[in-house]
Design a protein around this nucleic acid. Structure first.
Lengths: 150, 150
DNA sequence: CTGGTCGCAACCATATGTGTTACGACAGGC
DNA sequence: GCCTGTCGTAACACATATGGTTGCGACCAG
């Protein structure tokens, strides 16, 4: 499984924006977020673009532009983020269709698909249980020693 | 997420071997299995090699060689197969460590790791609930119209 | 008009998954 | 002892995904 870090980075970005706004700022720039994530601003803009299409954030252009939350952190779950940034399924079936003349080749795909559907449903329920506010609180609960935001 | 088909193919191979043995045969060759899966025998040998290292199958070499189950299909769960063929985690953290001077960058990794650990545990429980015998029975329950095994 | 930021395309490097060929290792049958 | 069929494994090719980077036009407050 070539696990990617999209869900992690998206949660990081949303958490960062949420905390930044809580501190009284209007919008956060992709460069600020990229600095915290330690990556390129374009990577952040790409991810936030997905989140914007999912209605989780809004972007403002022009001078003083940047990103802001479209909803309260409390109303966003990791499932919302997951659906916004991870289109594909968790497990894939065969890439070439198996031998339909064979009993196993014939019946294995529906059988596995049913199992995978159930697992994805469980995963979604699990992701839906965690809000971004939970994540922020967990982040702030880290044993910090007077660290600054930037 | 670049989902792969390893779990699917491994379950297919084990199911095939199980049914083949139930029909009275001693061992199954990677070429027979590959024919049902519709792929190259080397792909099957690679996967079965992982399963052998996990103690799920045994291989015999020389003339009349092939693969056989090391345990009853009933005693194998999809979790056993998953652990044998999928080493990595489901979700990745940042590839570059985030800014440790930032509160979010500092606390986000432990927070997300805790969440991911919980999710993987749920996934494992779900996979452990399905035995390969369940899969075979599900496969055989497909609306077949007098199909032959080979 | 200017400056700062987003939006997006294009490209590159790397990693991974899968298929394929090749060939040595092995063991049973002759 | 040799033949034959199969495994074991390395090596390579190819496609795709991911993440990083550069470049540049679009946009808008001042």
């Amino acid at each position: 499984m070539s696990a990617n870090s999209r869900l992690t980075i998206a949660a990081h970005a949303l958490t960062w924006i949420g905390l930044y706004q809580r501190q009284g700022h209007e919008v956060a720039t992709s460069e600020q977020i990229a600095s915290s994530v330690n990556t390129n601003p374009v990577v952040i803009r790409r991810l936030l673009g997905d989140l914007r299409r999912a209605g989780l954030v809004e972007s403002r252009r022009g001078v003083g532009a940047g990103w802001s939350l479209a909803r309260d952190l409390e109303s966003m779950t990791l499932l919302d983020v997951y659906e916004a940034v991870e289109p594909g399924p968790l497990f894939a079936l065969h890439r070439a269709t198996p031998d339909q003349e064979c009993v196993v080749g014939y019946g294995i795909q529906p059988a596995m698909q049913r199992i995978y559907d159930g697992i994805e449903e469980t995963l979604r329920r699990e992701l839906a249980r965690v809000t971004l506010k939970d994540v922020l609180q967990d982040v702030l609960a880290a044993p910090r020693q007077e660290l600054l935001t930037q």
